[in-house]
């Protein structure tokens, strides 16, 4: 059902945990749908120095969170905002069709955390002009 990479990131998730004094925090999904992802960012000089995640959800939700955090760690904000769910799926070696929404959640969680950072620092991030985290609150039931 899952690729070896998905199972590896599920069994040994990278960047798990809570972050004190994060510069940006984003949470998407809801309990009703069975998926919640929370992303914490430490940003310095427009670079994502550290990232942590906490996820409630199935195996592919945990693996998608883990892979997404790996893909943006050490990258610039501009690069992170460009991260698509397709890139997460590719890096995982594929997801079953019914699990694609997990990768979408990961993308949205990162955008949500970047949005939070932009709000806190009064910055404008290119690519997030039309992003509304409120829309993402109910995200997940797909």
């Amino acid at each position: 059902m899952y690729t070896e990479t998905v199972m590896d990131h599920f069994r040994n998730p990278r960047n798990v945990g809570h972050m004190e004094n994060a510069d940006g925090v984003g949470q998407v999904g809801n309990v009703k749908c069975g998926d919640i992802m929370k992303i914490y960012l430490k940003i310095n000089d427009e670079i994502i120095e550290d990232v942590k995640f906490e996820t409630f959800g199935c195996g592919s939700a945990i693996a998608s969170s883990s892979m997404a955090t790996e893909l943006i760690k050490g990258k610039s904000i501009d690069e992170a905002v460009e991260l698509s769910n397709k890139a997460v799926i590719e890096a995982l070696g594929g997801l079953p069709p019914v699990k694609v929404h997990c990768s979408v959640l990961a993308e949205q969680a990162i955008k949500s955390a970047l949005y939070d950072y932009a709000q806190k620092t009064n910055k404008t991030i290119k690519g997030l002009e039309n992003f509304n985290p409120e829309d993402e609150e109910e995200f997940g039931c797909h």
Binding site: Y2, M7, F10, R11, G34, D35, F56, G57, C58, G59, A61, I62
Partner: peptide, 14 residues
């Protein structure tokens, strides 16, 4: 509470 069933099943299978 606070966890999801499929993730549990995958770890049980291991």
């Amino acid at each position: 509470k606070y966890v999801e069933g499929e993730a549990i099943l995958l770890l049980l299978d291991m």
